[in-house]
Design a protein around this nucleic acid. Structure first.
Lengths: 137, 137
DNA sequence: TTTGATTTTGCAACATTGTTGCGTTTTTGT
DNA sequence: ACAAAAACGCAACAATGTTGCAAAATCAAA
């Protein structure tokens, strides 16, 4: 589906900014950050407008958010059953409650190995489950 | 291990700020954000100092980062094999290369179901694999 | 216990990212 | 071409994160 038809099918008006964003995604086959889009887009799109374009695309299922590891993080105490100096693994999942926002470690849960494309190698992984905790259920 | 011994065992000096941070983690059994720590800590700790305390704790394996879903995100085109209006699922993992920073969708990979504590319910999940892509290997 | 090297802190200044309100412009269907 | 609705651009602001540097606190050794 071309860009114009895509917009029309979602009842979104055809504007220079939106077309430029879609064109950039068509050219680069990967996830792009807001700043990458801001720089890469040919049109001069206002920063706020770009946020709103992305928002509208996301609401219409044209784009989806991809988590980044440079995240606005929380911190948790490491499990200190091991000796000092021993290799420390944080290869476990975390759970965040949608309502209260509390985040806990699922210490017993090894993150399962995932299949990656040929030539790729895995160094770490990050798994966040979201839902309701027992307090907020 | 108590807070003082913990600091000593990592060659970190005992300061009011560090003890206050450890005390807060001991009290609240969950992951805490920078702002939650800033507010919760009894001592008056400078904002920048708190960043540095967390940094030193992380480097020494005392704390680990926990991803948050309110992340500084990237965007990727949704897979549009489905019809418009059809339910759209983004329940797949993503891969981010440590070197070039490129992030791609692992479209074929369903995120496996994880065990959560009694009384908890799962609504969504987010899995980011990091490593080297074929270009940077 | 005083001293001196080193670590840690606090402050100021700045960069980036994301949000809101509002008046203006553009798009679209009629 | 017109009017309603949608989208835009700008200004202002808030939150988050970073850097440099001088002052203060810590720790170990004399």
């Amino acid at each position: 589906m071309n860009a114009e038809a895509l917009l029309k099918s979602h009842g979104l008006r055809k504007t220079a900014g939106r077309l430029a964003v879609l064109a950039l995604f068509a050219k680069r086959e990967k996830a792009l950050s807001h700043s990458e889009l801001q720089e890469g887009v040919t049109e001069n799109v206002d920063r706020v407008t770009l946020y709103r374009i992305l928002e509208s695309f996301e609401q219409n299922g044209i784009l989806h958010k991809v988590p980044d590891d440079q995240v606005s993080v929380k911190y948790a105490l490491c499990d200190h059953d091991h000796e000092v100096g021993e290799a420390h693994s944080d290869n476990h999942a975390h759970f965040k409650c949608r309502v209260c926002g509390d985040t806990i470690c699922l210490d017993d849960s090894e993150i399962p190995t995932m299949q990656v494309p040929e030539g790729y190698s895995v160094e770490g992984s990050l798994l966040l489950i979201s839902g309701l905790c027992s307090k907020c259920a």
